[in-house]
């Protein structure tokens, strides 16, 4: 949980594997990196066993780059595709038993605040739609109502992709899947609405076909969760296996879905806007002057 754990022990540097040496010497720890620098530094995420062309992996890769302080971040996840990649990253990962990731993160973020005081330590929950909206639903919602200060990111692929294609609460109505042959009977759950109702300080929906937008959304969510309150991001990360999307058409599908039902939306409380503007200099949230001063006439 500090820059010390990304250093070599004295005398051991030449024996370390190349990936580790690259991470220490050219990793993002202690620096500011952005998505426009991708391909020129060693990333936190390593080789992972996720399917070729998976949009969830792309989102996780962008998320790892977007963390404001990767050396002070802990990710929490649960069963599902996402943790296969998240657990391969060079930042600590805590595995919550299926469904209790938000409860684990609550304890973790409270403990870190007791131990480190004002020094920011970020806890980020990244789990799938099944782990968050079905099995861990009560704990996700309760962490929001308790105003636990950590970021919750839902990797919404609208299906249980890891177990063969069962319907989840986030699947669209009428969708036929391999393990849901009659089609889903009820509507997609409105998790964004529930997050707003529960009082999340920052709520956003995003699709990974715009890397810069993903970066800005995750930066804001993690920063707001440091002091203001719970934050929630819902990201559409298609499952190209269960939805039979050819891998080279994954971004085309993301674009279509964004236009169809996953438009970018962002909701901030006034407190969060004020915090981002005054503490981190987000110009778009600075209070606008009440009346525009008229230009002097020539």
């Amino acid at each position: 949980m500090s820059l010390d754990y990304v250093k070599f022990s004295p005398g051991f540097d030449k024996f370390m594997p190349k990936e580790y040496r690259d991470m220490v010497e050219h990793g993002p720890f202690g620096k500011k990196v952005t998505v426009s620098q991708m391909g020129s530094f060693k990333e936190i995420l390593e080789e992972h066993p996720m399917c070729a062309g998976c949009a969830m992996t792309l989102f996780i890769r962008l998320a790892m780059i977007s963390f404001p302080n990767p050396e002070d971040t802990i990710t929490v996840g649960t069963a599902g595709c996402g943790r296969l990649a998240i657990s391969q990253a060079a930042i600590p990962f805590v595995y919550g038993n299926y469904g209790d990731q938000s409860a684990v993160a609550s304890g973790l973020s409270r403990g870190l605040r007791l131990r480190f005081g004002d020094k920011p330590k970020d806890v980020v929950v990244m789990a799938g739609d099944g782990g968050m909206a079905d099995i861990g639903f009560s704990m996700t919602l309760h962490s929001w109502f308790r105003k636990e200060r950590f970021t919750t990111i839902m990797l919404d692929n609208e299906v249980y992709g890891n177990t063969g294609g069962q319907e989840s609460g986030m699947t669209n109505k009428g969708q036929v899947l391999k393990m849901a042959p009659l089609g889903k009977k009820f509507e997609k759950m409105d998790m964004v609405g529930m997050a707003k109702l529960a009082g999340c300080a920052y709520v956003a929906t995003v699709v990974p076909n715009n890397p810069r937008r993903v970066e800005s959304v995750i930066k804001k969510a993690v920063l707001v969760a440091r002091e203001i309150g719970p934050t929630y991001i819902q990201a559409y990360t298609s499952c190209n296996i269960e939805y039979s999307i050819p891998t080279d058409k994954v971004m085309e599908d993301a674009k279509n879905v964004e236009n169809d039902r996953y438009q970018f939306s962002e909701h901030l409380t006034e407190e969060a806007k004020h915090y981002l503007a005054t503490r981190y200099g987000f110009k778009e949230y600075l209070p606008k002057p009440a009346t525009a001063t008229a230009l002097p006439q020539a």
């Binding site: 998505v35 426009s36 991708m38 391909g39 020129s40 060693k42 990333e43 936190i44 995420l45 390593e46 080789e47 992972h48 996720m50 070729a52 062309g53 998976c54 949009a55 992996t57 792309l58 890769r61 962008l62 790892m64 890397p211 971004m251």
Partner: peptide, 16 residues
């Protein structure tokens, strides 16, 4: 344009 480096799902695969 560097777009491919930002859209590859694999980390450190398309480099610049």
């Amino acid at each position: 344009c560097k777009l491919c480096t930002q859209y590859c799902p694999e980390a450190n695969t398309i480099l610049y």
